[in-house]
Simulated scan of single mutants.
Amino acid sequence: MSRYLFYISQNYSFAILRPLQKAILARGGEAAWFVEGDNVNHEFFNKDEVLLPSIDAVKEYNPRAVFVPGNVVPSFVPGLKVGVFHGFNSGKRNRKGKEDHFNIRGSFDLYCTQGPNTTETFNILAEKAGYFDVKETGWPAIDPLYEPLLVKKEIERPTILFCSTFSRNLTSAPHLFEEIKRLSITGKYRWLVQFHPKMPKEIIEQYKAIESEHLSFVETDNVIPLLQEADLMVCDTSSVLLMFLLLNKPVVTFNNISPKEYLINISEPELLESSIELGLTKPKELMTNIESFIEQTHPYQDGGSSERVLDAVDEILSRPQKSVKKPLNLLRQFKMRKKLGYWKL
Rank of each mutant, 00 (worst) to 15 (best):
G83V: 02
L241M: 15
G83D: 05
P320T: 07
S75Q: 10
R190T: 11
D314I: 04
M1E: 06
A209L: 04
Y131K: 13
L110P: 15
F67P: 10
T137R: 04
F45P: 11
T288V: 07
L241H: 04
L80N: 08
S75M: 09
T121Y: 00
F102R: 04
T220V: 11
T159E: 07
G97F: 07
L330P: 00
P200R: 01
M243Q: 15
E49S: 01
G70W: 06
A32F: 08
E60Y: 11
H214G: 01
K181Y: 05
R157H: 10
I185R: 12
E99G: 09
K181W: 03
I24K: 13
L241Q: 15
R337A: 05
T297G: 07
L245Q: 07
K47S: 10
F67C: 13
G79M: 12
S238W: 01
E291R: 13
K325Q: 13
Y207P: 13
V58A: 05
P144M: 02
L51W: 14
V50N: 03
R93P: 01
T118N: 14
H86G: 15
I104E: 09
R157W: 08
K338I: 08
V50Q: 04
L246F: 09
L331K: 14
A141L: 08
L286N: 11
K98A: 14
P140I: 06
E268V: 03
V84Q: 12
I290Q: 02
E154L: 12
I204R: 09
W33A: 00
F34Y: 15
R105C: 09
S274T: 15
L5V: 14
E202M: 04
A230T: 02
E49F: 00
Y189A: 08
L330C: 06
E156F: 06
V251A: 13
L145N: 01
L331E: 09
T288M: 08
E229L: 15
F334Q: 08
T159C: 05
S305H: 09
G279W: 04
P200A: 02
G106E: 02
I266C: 07
E229M: 09
I160Q: 04
Y189K: 11
R18Y: 11
L176I: 03
E229H: 12
R27S: 12
V309E: 00
G303P: 07
L241W: 00
A57Q: 05
M199W: 03
K249G: 07
K322A: 03
Y12V: 06
N289P: 00
K322F: 01
V72T: 13
L328D: 06
N117F: 04
A15N: 11
D100P: 00
K59E: 15
E213Q: 14
